[in-house]
Write a protein that binds this DNA or RNA. Sequence first.
DNA 1: AGTGCGGCCTGTCCGC
DNA 2: TGCGGACAGGCCGCAC
Length: 271
Amino acid sequence: MPELPEVETTLQGIAPAITGEKIKSVIVRERRLRWTIPASFEQTLSGNTIDHVSRRAKYLLIHTQNGTLIVHLGMSGSLKIATDSTVLRKHDHVDILFFNGTRLRFHDPRRFGCLLWTKKDPFQHKLLKTLGPEPLTDMFNARYLYTKSRNRKVSIKQFIMNSHIVVGVGNIYASEALFMSGINPKRMASGISLTRYECLNNSIKTVLSEAIKQGGTTLRDFVSGKGEPGYFQQKLNVYAKQGDACSRCNSTIKTIKQGQRSTFYCPNCQT
DNA sequence: AGTGCGGCCTGTCCGC
DNA sequence: TGCGGACAGGCCGCAC
């Protein structure tokens, strides 16, 4: 669920509440996340003051003087400011309590998320070091995509979803951006022209920035087993729209599997 | 080095 | 009504 816009929204939501605040204690109720939280975690975090909060790809970085907490929300994670009256829910795995009474709560039913403490420069961390550029920067442009894609033997869909090529393009936005640019998701990345990459690059930026503008609320919490539409289906042109009429040409939207993931596209508009 | 795939995990839906 | 199985998803880590 949390794609780039949600992570950005989370950042903006928690940063004002915790910046400058000192950690009093940490409560861990479930250690088995994507990477198990070590026993030393509570002690290590306690006493640190939050310097600032930032984001790299879908990772949230909570910086302190002594180290950085790297947070990934995985599929189903959320990070929120709780109060004393907030009811403790199932899957509320971690609370970080501050001296001023603020309580930061990590919730993650599927436990694909992670909380990692690093004393070193977080950008040199193994998970962050090799990531591709941020999609909304000038580093990410058509020329970059064109150059990177030469000799790549994967489909364009898989190519733009590779976080070492560009970060933040999840399954939903990949389908939407390819629809917007009229590119067939099955097409090989290596065979796409610079001109078409210009179009695709623009589409990715447009789709993501529009979603961020809406506070990331374009996305649903959950996709049912049958790919039922979420609350915001009307915002999407192809994602989870298999069988529907294409909004542009009225052809039927198709779904296929690529790299074990669902892709949605219009066989007529996307060539 | 690039690619493909297994695995992690729960909630929800479907068919029996 | 209960239960098993399929499925969704991000992304690491391994094997080729």
